[in-house]
Design a protein around this nucleic acid. Sequence first.
DNA 1: CCAGGCTTGGAGG
DNA 2: CCTCCAAGCCTGG
Length: 145
Amino acid sequence: MNGSARFGLWHVHVHWEENMVFRINFMRRPVPGSVPVEISRFLAGISENFGDFRSIGTTADYPFANIYEAVERIEYGKTETYGEIARVTGTHPRLVGLALKRNPTPLLIPCHRIIGKNSIGGFTPDITIKEDLLSLEKRRTKKQK
DNA sequence: CCAGGCTTGGAGG
DNA sequence: CCTCCAAGCCTGG
């Protein structure tokens, strides 16, 4: 299945089958079709998780699966550094950056929660998406308590 | 094969 | 405060 949902100036393209999500991309234009309600609710700041949906990125043989698993464990509204992810996965911060750039499913694998020690770090295709996702989570987390 | 990537910590000025 | 650099390792060219 394919579809897209609006997120600010961007359109989140989702490609999935059953409960397995193969690809999530941020594009400037929409495509026909919608996305799973779990994803649109997350983008709207209504929910904090994706129910039974799984990312292809954390299947055993996928490149960087161990890094993606570590990233997946970061809680909603929290952040971690590239260095810390490198430490727990026994690799190098720079390799973490490489893995995140190749993240097949942003959101499900919350690479936006990884920031640099001295800067926000990067985000492909546009850093403003990362900023918007982080402020969305911060806003909702604050509202919770 | 080889350069370069969403980094980091340390050395040196 | 600043710049410079090595370490780490996977992948596209």
